[in-house]
Design a protein around this nucleic acid. Structure first.
Lengths: 210, 210
DNA sequence: GTCTATAGGAAGATAGAC
DNA sequence: GTCTATCTTCCTATAGAC
């Protein structure tokens, strides 16, 4: 076996952990199975991490970023408001369809964090990132297309985030991708109805905290 | 210890399991902790259940019914459509606010079932019951208030179910009950916009499967 | 830094006395 | 039907040779 710097080893183990968790679930991700997946011996694990919980912490930070970043990077408003919203939802949804196990894992990790005293903040940070991603989308739309919101930004952000999260879970359980797509169509329609064109000179209110 | 018939013992153990799971999470609900909670010895467990999974099956059937039934029982449409929708949502939400741990458990059990090969059907049944509850609500509204839907019933059912489920999870993680209530207000508004009064003589379409 | 070996405990399940 | 005692397996974590 090679001798790698500790930071490299940690990264290697975190990635192995994510693979195991994605494939077999969080409950099956024991230190042994993670080490086997990474191809290192058990004591390497405890050389790099003080405890298993320390690894989990790293895993959650990594997976949340991984789930939010690629979507945020691809927001591209066009002239048509409804189509812009639908396209953003579609980008996210393509990711769900392509990597359902990965999204499944995010729910498992949320539960895991909420149940471990002292780790609730990880779940909270996860959902705050979801909210931030939706807020960014709305700001983007309002700025580029000159729109103002008809409901408080905070409410719409949460509306969007909850709908997306709920529909994802619903789809993971029940399947029926076409039905889920129809729900996204409806959601896009509803979101459009919660916006209107800004009047000339009207500050196209960047949805702050409300 | 008393000598009880096997069926009674099973019920007793299922209830103990739910208490432990609600309090400490599914992962902590070992056969030992469940037996301790029920006040029986370990071998009683295996006298009543062939395996732990057999108990889990019982637990999931019980908890899902428990989560859906009380809400369905209290649907009371008034003359105002929007208020009727909001009231139904409010009844559910009161239950969430009063028993957050119980709803937390439903998410954990969903994950548990989805991860255990051969148990996915339990998760599916759970979400089918959610859908059925929302379908019943819509039928109730359409029939009593003479309304027809502007979107396919199946889509609206899923829209509602996903939103409610997502918002519940969102609230369990982030809290902020007033913010969640505002989302429910908005949802009620949106749902109303997806209905219209049936014209005289128009069949007030019972939302079948669509 | 990496290995083998093992401590120390808790899990699901079973055996057999009462 | 209920009990105590035990089997087997798997876990996290550590010790100490190389």
């Amino acid at each position: 076996m090679q001798r790698l710097p500790s930071a490299e080893r940690r990264k290697q183990l975190v990635e192995a952990a994510i693979r195991v968790m994605t494939r077999d679930g969080v409950a099956k991700a024991t230190t042994r199975s993670i080490c086997a997946e990474a191809g290192v011996s058990l004591s390497v694990f405890h050389y790099c991490f003080a405890s298993k919980q320390e690894l989990i912490e790293d895993v959650m930070e990594t997976i949340t970023a991984h789930s939010v970043t690629p979507v945020a990077a691809r927001i591209q408003p066009t002239a048509d408001v409804r189509e812009s919203v639908r396209a953003a939802l579609g980008t996210y949804w393509d990711h769900v369809l392509a990597h359902p196990e990965e999204h499944m894992l995010t729910y498992e990790l949320t539960q895991y964090a909420l149940r471990r005293p002292g780790f609730e903040y990880l779940a909270r940070r996860q959902y705050e990132q979801y909210a931030a991603a939706n807020r960014a989308l709305l700001e983007h739309l309002c700025r580029d297309l000159g729109l103002v919101l008809l409901v408080p930004a905070g409410t719409l952000v949460r509306y969007l985030a909850s709908m997306i999260d709920g529909l994802t879970l619903n789809h993971l359980v029940l399947g029926d991708a076409p039905g889920a797509a129809a729900v996204l169509d409806t959601l896009a329609d509803q979101v459009v109805q919660m916006m209107r064109r800004a009047e000339p000179g009207e500050e196209n209110a960047a949805p702050g905290d409300g």
